[in-house]
Amino acid sequence: MFDPAAQDHHPTLSPAFHRERRDMRAMGMWLFLGSEVMFFTAFFAAYIVARSAAPGFVAMPLERGFGTLNTIVLLTSSLTMALAVLNSKRGERVKTGRYIALTFLLACVFLVVKGIEYAHHFEAGDFPSHDIFFGFYFLLTGFHGLHVLGGMITLAILWWRNRRGDFNKDYNDPIEIAGLYWHFVDLVWIFLFPALYLL
């Protein structure tokens, strides 16, 4: 039995420890994603209420090209993230780093496209206060964008830690857990895209 009173400051953490902690972190992340679902629930439910009941609601068609492009960008980033996780579990440090970097770049592309789109709206005078549709549009895409930004910060830190050599075959759960989050960001967009651009 490990004696905490005699603990030195750099104990060795065994693979069994990492497996156990991976399960704890995964559960924590799933709980967080559950709470994220509830966070977006409020927005979606409000949007559906506005769509189904508000008399003056006008769904203004946005430019579908931007939306479709961003959907493809995010789906691709999901693929690269999944491949990064796959590689990290096999201890492929260099390939893991490459895929994380690729995911990061795709996230950048997403935000740049979103920025161009926002710029178009602002030029046309479509500010959030313009009408209730643009209110929801900026609310939903804005908070989704913040999640993308948060994911990018996480990815940058992971890339750096991976480069430093923190991860190996036994210890790589931060990449996997960040992957869960990144896929969730994709998941939200999968619903936002038809709800805002197509329907």
Binding site: H10, T12, L13, S14, P15, H18, N168, D170, Y171
Partner: peptide
């Protein structure tokens, strides 16, 4: 945090 260099 260091990690084990085992081959498990």
């Amino acid at each position: 945090m260091s990690s084990a260099a085992t081959t498990a």
